[in-house]
Nucleic acid binder design. Structure first.
Length: 462
RNA sequence: GCCUAAUUAGCUCAGUUGGUUAGAGCACAUGACUGUUAAUCAUGGGGUCCUAGGUUCGAGUCCUAGAUUGGGCGCCA
């Protein structure tokens, strides 16, 4: 019977004394004079299976003794339940066939490696315990997101990755062009002639699918996007990548409070979903990556998220007596040190709402005080700003005024303004950093270690 | 982009005040071993001490510049 490690762990009791065939990679090989042990992993399950081989049974015993870590093999043998041993069952091999050798200089050894070294071997690191766990959970997290929204009748849309709008704010974008960069066509005063370009205008990779999601929300009511996003900022931190994934739900006939409730429900759902479907991996993170991780996550699921206004948050910071590098101020953004203090102070995720209008985007709905907007950030320990969202300005005249004040070109966003002209309604949404969510779930401290092949400034290997 | 630290064997690291032939564990190779599980034990091979200059009788060690990497901060809808 051709089977997998995952299946054997699920059914080993009923398969006692049956013959099975496995394909996988050698994680460890401990050879002795007349017998030896191979730890086999086939990628389907976090655990390995111990294969016992004996000189009396195998004709290629000598070759099997010399199998190196990383080799791919086929193993045929009898499953034997071993209740008194360290492992619940093992395979008594009848045949062990090497399929692919692993050369002497194989970098991945059965020992602890530094994260930095494994980053430089991003093509091999999914074979380690840690990254096997990270990327399986990443896959499950992906599914959790879709399940959460699909179960609630949200419609998924794929927002475009190439946009022509230059009106999305201060974020540095990657340019998309088919122009010959060695000989760019110019118009009279030396400026680039984009009429010669593929789209006949400036184009760039998207920094957000939100504006398009709004258009769909005003047709389907509840929608979400889930896809990659690109930022060309020269950011060198543990929470920034040049290419990352975002989830951006958008809900119509809803305000900022509905928005926060959705965010809170989603975070709780995701945590429960992942813990249930990747218990081995989550235990591993709990033990070896961040002690107390599971306790922290379980607490998040069972408690209500704190909600405070930006003003209250600044007051908490000022009253704390804590010395900060940057002095907290009512009109200013929160610095990283402030965010860290707040999540520690409240010992869990914190929504900060009602932000000063001048530090937020043009589309956020003006509050009645005319000074703050209906924006919310969800701060969590370890990943900083996990979610940023807002109620959107649905009143055409307010929106146009803000665009003028903030120098956002109205002509390019004519279609966005149309949404306010034809059956506009109050609506809200948020963006969740998928990779940061994964950091939060696993306790991994660097975003480069939760992305299969991360892109950051000066790094586009693999 | 700013500040800071690091770079020595395939990996993780030690290397004293500038002084003989730069070490250890793991990995690898050879051998021993009748239940190992990061197996153990013995033996062996393996080095452009990041790069380029400089100081010195003598540099892994001190100085200058650069590269790469980590951390902190900034930038960041």
């Amino acid at each position: 019977m051709k089977t997998t490690v995952k299946e054997l762990y699920a059914r080993f009791e009923e398969l006692n004394n049956q013959e099975v065939t496995l394909f996988g990679w050698v994680r460890n090989n401990r050879a002795q004079k007349e017998f030896g042990f191979i730890n086999l992993n086939d990628g389907t399950f976090f655990e390995t299976i111990q294969v016992v081989y004996e000189n009396e049974i195998l004709d290629n015993f000598k070759e099997t003794q010399k199998l190196r870590v990383g080799s791919s093999v086929r193993v045929k043998g009898i499953l034997v339940v071993t209740p008194s041993m360290k492992q619940p069952f093992e395979i008594k091999a009848r045949e062990v066939e090497m399929l692919g050798d692993s050369l002497e200089d194989y970098p991945i050894q059965p020992k602890r490696h530094s994260r930095e070294f494994l980053r430089e071997n991003a093509h091999l690191r999914p074979r380690t315990n840690l990254f096997s766990a990270v990327f399986r959970v990443r896959s499950i997290l992906n599914h959790a997101i879709h399940t959460f929204f699909q179960d609630r009748n949200f419609v998924h849309l794929a927002a475009p990755l190439i946009t022509a709008s230059d009106a999305e704010g201060a974020g540095e974008t990657f340019k998309v062009t088919t122009l010959d960069l060695d000989s760019v066509p110019k118009i009279k005063d030396g400026e680039v002639d984009y009429h010669e370009d593929f789209f006949q205008k400036k184009a760039n990779l998207t920094v957000s699918g939100q504006l398009q999601a709004e258009a769909f929300a005003l047709a389907f009511k509840d929608v979400y996007t889930f896809g990659p996003t690109f930022r060309a900022e020269n950011s060198n931190t543990t929470t920034h990548a040049s290419e990352f994934w975002m989830i951006e739900p958008e809900i119509a006939f809803a305000d900022i409070h509905d928005d926060m409730q959705l965010a809170e429900d989603m975070v709780k759902f995701i945590i429960e979903y992942v813990i249930k479907r990747a218990p081995k991996e989550m235990e591993f993170f709990n033990k070896f990556v961040q002690k107390g991780l599971l306790e922290k996550l379980n607490k998040v699921v069972s408690s209500d998220f704190i909600r405070i206004t930006h003003k209250e948050a600044v007051k908490v910071l000022l009253d704390s007596g804590q010395k900060f590098e940057n002095l907290p101020k009512y009109g200013d953004d929160l610095a990283t040190e402030h965010e860290k203090f707040l999540v520690k102070h409240f010992d869990g995720p914190v929504f900060v709402i009602d932000w000063p209008k001048d530090i937020k985007a043009f589309y956020m709905r003006m509050n009645d005080d005319n000074e703050t907007v209906a924006a919310m950030d969800l701060l969590v320990p370890g990943s900083g700003e996990l979610i940023g969202g807002s109620q959107r300005e649905e009143r055409l005249e307010y929106l146009e005024k803000r665009m003028e004040e903030m120098n956002v070109p109205k002509e390019e966003l004519w279609w966005y303004l149309d949404l306010r002209k034809y059956g506009g309604c109050k609506h809200a949404g948020f963006g969740l950093g998928f990779d940061r969510m994964l950091m939060y779930l696993t306790g991994i401290e660097n975003i480069r270690d939760v992305i299969p092949f991360p892109r950051t400034p000066r790094n586009c290997e693999f």
